[in-house]
Simulated scan of single mutants.
Amino acid sequence: MSETLFSSLNHARSALSSWRCCYNYHRPRSGLGWLTPAEFAQTVNPRRVAVLRSRNVSAPQPAATAADAATQNRWSELKTLWLSSQA
């Protein structure tokens, strides 16, 4: 079993960054035709990726808009519950 004790958050970030670089750029995978993940990513159809991107943001537009944040608080929720229980 491989274990690492990190002495600080910066030590953990540095070690994980090194591991991620090695994993994605220097270690070929048999499941990817003996390519590294980075090399394999270059072979994926780039047109599909472009379709998923939006011009302004990376996420799709929401189906519904959020309610006014000023009215969304615990007091208004309790008041609504109390009024509905009185009916």
Results as ranks from 00 to 15, higher is better:
Ala63His: 08
His11Asp: 12
Ala64Trp: 11
Gly33Val: 08
Thr36Leu: 01
Val57Arg: 15
Arg53Ile: 01
Glu77Ser: 15
Cys22Glu: 14
Ser17Trp: 06
Ala59Gln: 13
Ser30Asn: 07
Ser18Thr: 13
Thr36Ala: 04
Ala59Val: 10
Arg13Thr: 03
Thr4Cys: 03
Ser54Leu: 02
Ser7Lys: 06
Gly33Trp: 01
Ser54Gln: 09
Asp68Asn: 14
Ser76His: 12
Cys21Trp: 04
Leu78Ser: 04
Ala69Val: 13
Cys22Asp: 14
Ser84Asp: 02
Arg13Glu: 01
Thr80Arg: 12
Gln61Arg: 10
Asn10Gln: 08
Pro60Arg: 14
Ser8Lys: 02
Leu81His: 05
Leu16Gln: 05
Ser2Leu: 06
Ser76Ile: 10
Val51Asp: 02
Arg74Pro: 00
Ser85Phe: 07
Asn10Leu: 07
Tyr25Cys: 11
Ser7Cys: 02
Ala70Val: 12
His26Asp: 07
Leu32Asn: 06
Ala12Phe: 02
Arg48Gln: 11
Ala63Asn: 00
Ala50Cys: 06
Ala50Val: 05
Asn10Ile: 01
Gln42Pro: 00
Ala15Tyr: 05
Ala64Leu: 12
Glu39Lys: 06
Ala38Tyr: 09
Trp19His: 07
Tyr23Thr: 10
Gln42Phe: 01
Phe6Gln: 00
Leu5Val: 13
Ala38Glu: 09
Arg29Trp: 11
His26Pro: 00
Ser85Tyr: 05
Gly33Ser: 03
Thr71Gly: 04
Met1Lys: 09
Lys79Asn: 14
Leu16Tyr: 00
Ser30Met: 04
Arg47Met: 13
Val49Ile: 09
Leu81Trp: 09
Trp19Phe: 10
Gly31Gln: 02
Tyr23Gln: 10
Leu5Asp: 00
Tyr25Met: 11
